Amino acid sequence: MAEAIDVVMNEATHRFEVTLGGETAFAEYSLLRDALVLPHTVVPAAFEGRGVGSALARTALGYARQHGLKVKPICPFMAGFIKKHSEWQDLVHPDFRARLGLPA
């Protein structure tokens, strides 16, 4: 059975985090009045292929949706995830839509 991926929003470090086997994967964030900025994601090589990056992205984007925030995906991983998963594209901030090749 696959190991459950538990993503935690760590407000002290401004990161969504997953810790497995003593290592931590994370997606940094900053909150603006109307947006969630996602500047950087780190997934250790030991986590690759286990869905950790996708879990981080879904949690961060879900947080944005729940709180009525638009997303500014500066991080190439987050931008790529959104491009591949159309169900999250409505969250992209107008200033970032062209960067992702999305209609205005």
Rank of each mutant, 00 (worst) to 15 (best):
F96Q: 04
R99D: 12
L102H: 02
K84N: 13
A45V: 15
F16G: 04
V92G: 01
A4N: 15
V71L: 06
A55H: 04
A60R: 05
E17D: 09
G49Y: 08
L20V: 10
G80R: 04
T24N: 11
P94N: 12
P39Y: 04
T59I: 00
L32D: 15
L36G: 02
Y63H: 12
V71F: 02
L56I: 04
P94G: 10
L32N: 14
A79C: 01
M9T: 11
Q66M: 09
H85D: 09
P39L: 04
A60N: 04
S54D: 14
P76I: 09
V71I: 12
G21Q: 10
H67R: 14
H93P: 00
A4S: 15
L32R: 15
R99W: 13
P44N: 08
N10M: 08
E23A: 12
T59L: 01
E28V: 00
P44E: 10
A25Q: 08
V52P: 01
R65N: 05
P76A: 12
Q66N: 14
V37Y: 04
H40Q: 12
E17W: 07
A98Q: 14
T13L: 13
H14K: 11
A4G: 11
L56M: 06
K70D: 14
E17G: 09
K84H: 12
F16D: 03
H67Y: 10
G51Y: 08
L36P: 03
S54F: 03
R15P: 07
A98G: 00
F47M: 13
